[in-house]
Nucleic acid binder design. Structure first.
Lengths: 259, 259
DNA sequence: TCATTTGGTCCATATATAAAGACCAAATAT
DNA sequence: ATATTTGGTCTTTATATATGGACCAAATGA
């Protein structure tokens, strides 16, 4: 179990806190909200303020993050961007499916959501960039795993922790291998309650030069249940439109192509 | 002397590091760059990754921040934005002066830069959002101080530390009061090496409903030295164009208006 | 004008944590 | 095939740090 760095996590908590409230907060409010001691909160806030990441929009009416966060985050996003073509693809998938769609990459034993467009419907799968799901137990992750060279995938699956999340959760490396094999033969990866309850979704592997991503369309099982095959075909078609007719032939010969 | 929270500062360091390199970095690279122990670096990175703030763009080729930073920073900036009109004003000042221009707000004993447009010229004043300068010793800060109700300004100046930064640095509350008085009578605040060496600049207070900001145009003294009065007049004119002819009459009756 | 509340700051010390270093796996070189 | 290097993970313990609580100033209410 990896050691969590408390004060690092606190910075993230604070960052998320301000993103969700959208308002300046006083030391006392922050301390109260998190149940942090006043003195510790003071030290943390002072540190962030000293570094130019927090200021007082109006004196003595609370602290708020400075635009420095935005400025740095933009530089970071700009330097290693998701190609514009991927954003386009995602938008098209969102339009076609009217469900929540996302792109994910890998982070150790987890897949991380890199870009998300939520469904406009009231009942929908909700997620935001940065969300992590276990690699071996989700369609999103399996679609990524399917692109890895054999030894790397084996290494990853060996260290995975096979916890039971739902009825379909695979409980061994062998099971995951089998699911991947079947999914490649089927032409798409299916998430059906193996991790998230009542979720139905379709994932397609998306190798992009040397990055291994996946695209997923998912929604409540009662809407997606009967539309999976159709959705998968739509996704493959959209990907071919965006990246060329021979995209799968060149990068994913193992994947069955739907008509 | 306020206690700095080391691991919180480390998160900020890391964030800035990625913004400046724009590349994924391995644990070893990060540890090397900062001189951090491998194990500590590991803990920190794990913490950020666990929370969905770091991922591996390509497995085993280093970590990089996820778009989650951007997403949260955008929410934060969107909730408490600098009015668009201020951005416009800033752009106009940048165009008119061809020097570096910025907007600043207050953070305790410091003024923080909230928005910056750098001069296109090779020799220029360089700054980024989040930069902090002492309130009492800079034109930017004094222009903010000039807007505060008397007791608050007095309190602030009482606790200020009167360090000598350059020839013109004020060394007591009284001196600052005098400078503010003179500057209001002059119609603008002058920074001339009282904090930054060889810097010449003009600041104008910018009260915006209950926020107390200031706008500054600054560059190397050899370019700005003879243009200050002219620049100040341009700034006042631009502000009046953006916020109405009677802006100063209504919000800053104490400030001399230039022809 | 005085009392009370609220928000912020400082300090000593018990406690949580960062770091040293051993370890392991995978990649690369021989 | 085997050795070496590189990158990542784990555990123990000396040490840095988070915290309780005292304190102070400013704002608010009586």
């Amino acid at each position: 179990m990896p050691t969590i760095v408390k004060q690092a996590a606190n910075v993230l908590d604070l960052f998320e806190f301000f993103a969700s409230t959208g308002q300046p907060a006083s030391l006392a409010e922050i301390a109260g909200h998190f149940g942090w001691p006043k003195s510790s909160t003071f030290n943390l806030i002072t540190t962030l303020a000293e570094r130019g990441f927090l200021y007082e929009p109006r004196p003595r009416h609370g602290f708020y993050p400075t635009p420095r966060w935005l400025s740095l985050a933009q530089e970071i996003a700009h330097a290693e961007p998701l190609p514009e073509s991927l954003q386009d693809l995602l938008r098209e998938l969102a339009r076609l499916s009217a469900e929540t769609v996302w792109l994910a990459g890998s982070a150790g034993q987890h897949a991380v959501f890199l870009a998300v467009i939520e469904s406009p419907q009231a009942i929908r799968y909700t997620a935001q960039p940065g969300k992590r799901v276990p690699m071996h137990a989700t369609a999103t992750g399996q679609a990524i795993l399917s692109q890895m060279p054999e030894p790397r995938r084996a290494a990853l699956l060996r260290q995975a922790s096979y916890e039971r999340f739902g009825p379909g959760t695979p409980m061994s490396a062998g099971e995951v291998d089998r699911i991947i094999e079947e999914s490649l033969a089927r032409g798409w990866f299916m998430s059906a309650s193996s991790y998230s309850q009542d979720l139905g979704g379709v994932s397609i592997p998306l190798p992009l030069n040397d990055r291994m991503l996946s695209a997923t369309v998912a929604g409540p099982l009662f809407r997606m249940g009967t539309r999976m095959e159709e959705t998968a075909a739509q996704m493959q078609a959209a990907i071919k439109r965006h990246f060329g007719k021979d995209y799968f032939d060149r990068h994913l010969p193992g994947l069955r192509q739907l008509p």
